[in-house]
Nucleic acid binder design. Structure first.
Lengths: 352, 352
DNA sequence: AAAAATTCCGTGACCGTGCACGAAAATCAC
DNA sequence: GTGATTTTCGTGCACGGTCACGGAATTTTT
């Protein structure tokens, strides 16, 4: 009712100083004696003072910037969604005098990550969003960020260190488990004897396969409920459509009866051509992520289900979370935000 | 770059008037000659002026209120989710000097709707959120709102008139279609011969069954792809657990082999007890809406799938949309917002 | 045409905070 | 103890609106 809004003046009065001093304390701008600072902080706590965001925003001139460190990508690839969400988040907070900036690197070249990180640091951002692809390099970066007191948010995956402001991502293990449950839904054991997992050649030689946990979840489910089932691994090269198709064809000749196909990365659309040539309405295909190509494949009935998340919302929320923290020192209510795993089929992908 | 922010002064100068006049035009506060008004509007358009929200919020004293007209509900019922989202939306816009207020009525008593609507109008809200249960009464209300120039947003369902600001809801017909597709996923025709649809006794005698379109979508799918299939209707009384169970038991005795059970309203949890007594892992049960009871039923494996939407987000977004419109006359980008239909099973309901 | 009534419009005091400027107080050097 | 530094602090304008007040311009009345 009588919500008398307390202002910086009230605090100043209570502390026996001027509003200028209170302001200095509020923004840790220094030039305040320890004694005064103590009194001001006391008064702030006592009065339960919260600064008026609007007055602050109106008066301030300082511009902030939030940076995103992202792998280079081609149109329609996974990382594009993170990028889009980041931009959208930037628009959402642009009225808070916060802008955004993206630094790209080559996801197969650790050195390029380092230089991108270096450039990013030089831009002196007020906050950073990172999908931590290179574990060690990211760790190094994060140490510097901590030293510079720059908050950062993980998206996609997360490192096991303790200083990130928040994390947005899909629970990988569970997403594999979910996939297996959908693939085998209401099937008897003798109906699921063989499964093909299509994988990316390049990931084999990589330090860390990004889908490893997902695969683990999937395998655990199958081994528990379909112990007799055989899981084949088929490797393809996403950059070479011809070799991909050849690999698929020759595998198909070898194992013509396989009805269950799964792909743990976001590239299940690469199989569309093959499925078009070999239609089979007994087949069940499950992939991940709502890339345009994947969605189209579901629409055409080539892929049955997609397990997705609002990837763009991850980076969007990351930006908003950072902005809230930068402007108002507001801690996010939940630090580890596992986004919901959506299940998309032909009939519910329209409004996604 | 040189994003020189244009202020009310720039507009005033361009129009050859004072800022006071511009302000009067901006808020349709009258006391402006047609000539001046025209010049001001011209200048606004020319300069592409947008008022500074923060300055406005800082200076304004006026309080606004957004009202929600909602059926009375018990804890754990569908309408509670709309309520929760409304409250959450209210918190999100509270800093815009906007508060919220809820007016409850008896969903089976048209007269109580009318008095609630009357009370609501007397509170002179700046915006209204309505799930239009009573078509005619809502129409009457809406006419008054239009006359009073009060914007309103539909949630849940929508009337076929043209003046609402926005609508948030699930595409009912499609949600039935989706349900049928999931129920029969990868089934051969001879595997789906009988389906039970459990319905609410009371809805039979009601003017309009709220699930009618959903049922239509469901039936259309089944008739298309499983023309031989028989759909049974079983009516229960949600307020009487004993009679419900009796109805289920006697139906079960009559048709013991039925493996497919569907419920089109949000009360599939009412069947939990029965399923507990008659476990059958060949059975497939699909319901709607993520009420706690329903979620629990999925977790326990009594219900296979839930088709849900973020019901709370409907009313939440409704409030935010209204606030944006009230404060900044911002039209929502999409007027008819069909929210995405989520599919929930045992393995992806945790983070929902 | 002057007076009265209306309509229209400019002015200026806020709203609560940020920040530059310079004065006051405290510390230091000798 | 005096002057020079350095530290600490108060003051006042700016930010871009809102809105009440009262005066100017216009219309109406007599």
């Amino acid at each position: 009712m009588d919500e008398k809004k307390i202002t910086i003046f009230d605090v100043a009065e209570k502390a026996g100083v001027s509003k200028g001093t209170v302001d200095r304390v509020l923004h840790n701008r220094g030039e305040v004696s320890k004694k005064s600072e103590a009194k001001v902080r006391e008064a702030i706590k006592l009065l339960n003072y919260e600064p008026n965001l609007y007055a602050s925003l109106l008066a301030t001139k300082s511009k902030r910037e939030i940076a995103l460190l992202l792998p280079k990508y081609n149109k329609g690839e996974y990382w594009e969604m993170l990028y889009d969400g980041f931009v959208a988040g930037g628009e959402a907070v642009s009225s808070l005098n916060i802008s955004t900036n993206v630094f790209l690197y080559d996801q197969y070249d650790s050195a390029s990550f380092k230089t991108a990180a270096e450039r990013m640091l030089e831009s002196r951002p007020s906050g950073v969003v990172i999908p931590p692809l290179f574990k060690n390099d990211t760790m190094e970066l994060v140490n510097k960020l901590n030293a510079m007191d720059i908050p950062y948010v993980y998206v996609d995956t997360r490192l096991e260190e303790g200083n990130y402001l928040a994390y947005y991502g899909m629970p990988m293990y569970k997403s594999g488990y979910l996939c297996a449950s959908l693939l085998t839904d209401r099937r008897r054991e003798d109906e699921v004897k063989e499964i093909v997992v299509v994988r990316i050649q390049r990931d084999k030689s990589r330090l860390s396969d990004p889908t490893i946990n997902r695969r683990a979840g999937f395998t655990d489910f199958i081994e528990t409920y379909f112990p007799e089932c055989v899981i084949y691994n088929l490797f393809i090269d996403p950059s070479d459509a011809r070799s991909t198709n050849e690999a698929l064809e020759s595998f198909h000749e070898l194992h013509p009866g396989i009805k269950h196909v799964v792909m743990f990365n976001s590239r299940v659309h690469l199989l569309s051509d093959f499925f078009k040539r070999h239609p089979d309405n007994q087949r069940c295909v499950i992939g991940y992520d709502n890339l345009d190509g994947n969605v189209e494949a579901v629409r055409e009935g080539l892929v049955n289900l997609l397990i997705t998340q609002h990837t763009d919302r991850q980076s969007h929320d990351a930006v908003v979370t950072l902005a809230d923290y930068i402007i108002m020192r507001k801690q996010p209510p939940i630090r580890d935000c596992y986004v919901h795993m959506d299940i998309l089929n032909k009939y519910n992908l329209e409004n996604y």
